[in-house]
Design a protein around this nucleic acid. Structure first.
Lengths: 198, 198
DNA sequence: ACCTGAACACCGTTCAAGT
DNA sequence: ACCTGAACACCGTTCAAGT
């Protein structure tokens, strides 16, 4: 699993083949099938191992601060293995490793006074936003991503896309980077706060 | 592109091969390379065609109603081609088809009084949430998805996961379905509303 | 108990050649 | 201008056989 993760991180999911991994390990291809029933099971193991890497932040500060801490950790973990996101998508993420963060988030939100349903729905919203943010963060520095938007947006016909032409810089800024991540998180947490029972 | 889309929708992305598509069209494999430089270009064409399918809702009601309408349309379009989501992930989505919805959303938010940066960041948050919601909606009816969570969650050790055990029904509900989608959307829009210049 | 080569049914793409 | 078969360098997995 370790060698497979390294291979996926450095050369992409497409570079991970049973044959290649076996060669990397200096072992016959079929040997792998003694440890994983098929490739699917190997991919599951990679995802599980990555989920176990997530470190939970210290339980200090307001509930908003703590939930933000969890979201940041998830984002970091996902961006440490950018190619891994493509593996994860098809899978349910109901393993203990993946649910440790859900447990922590539920504890924080329940302690803040949210009922069970509000806490579950609220954290789901935070998680989905965080995952999509990481999924749409292209590899490389955020400046590069913004630059690509800067290049593509002005090519649109201005008659049909007047609003986009008027806000090219702002739209490019919203495509990646810490500022956008924190801003979206704040919107969701503000919405939650407005619903909190006094 | 039409036949390829049908193939992806009915048998999954993995079933789409140049050889298979050519056979389906009753044509030599290499013929396809006269129309697409490689498979990547074919996948791009499929994504573009799907983005063009999105219908924009009528410009009536509050800004919240209109933005929700766009989010619902995007979600519908994504869930009409569930396998297509996996293709889309790696791609930037800066084509005219994909940006028509951005144009519409920017017009609505600007008219509601948001400045360019608030509008861009706000819509980006809505879009990311909507995309992740669709991406994590497993194929089949939402009841089935909840059922799978119901089956997996009680298997967790209760000592380590007390909060999850206490809220299994609520967590399963938050995994799929219209109610969760609308709730998350409301959280984000409430957060936005709180920031609106008077 | 653990390992593995050969074989099968697939891939995407290059190249040279057909009409 | 449009099409394509053969060939190359790959896949995941089954099976039967090795130590």
């Amino acid at each position: 699993v370790e060698v497979a993760t390294r291979l996926v991180d450095s050369e992409g999911v497409d570079a991970l083949s049973m044959r290649r991994l076996a060669a990397e390990l200096g072992v016959g291809t079929m040997t792998l099938y003694g440890y994983f029933r098929d490739k699917e099971e190997l991919l599951d193991a990679i995802v599980d191992a990555a989920a176990d890497e997530i470190r939970l932040p210290a339980a200090r500060g307001s509930w908003q601060t703590q939930i933000k801490g969890i979201a940041r950790e998830i984002r970091d973990a996902l961006e440490r293995h950018p190619e891994g996101i493509r593996i994860r998508l098809a899978r349910p993420m109901l393993t203990p490793g993946a649910l440790r963060t859900t447990e922590a988030a539920m504890r924080i939100l329940r302690a803040a006074g949210f009922d069970r349903a509000e806490a579950a729905r609220g954290y789901r919203t935070v998680f989905l936003y965080t995952f999509a943010f990481a999924a749409f963060t292209p590899p490389g520095p955020p400046a590069k991503a913004r630059q690509r938007s800067f290049a593509a947006l002005p090519a649109l016909p201005p008659k049909e896309f007047p609003e986009i032409h008027d806000a090219i810089a702002e739209l490019a800024d919203s495509m990646a980077g810490d500022e956008q991540f924190e801003h979206g998180l704040d919107l969701i947490l503000d919405g939650l706060q407005a619903r909190r029972a006094p």
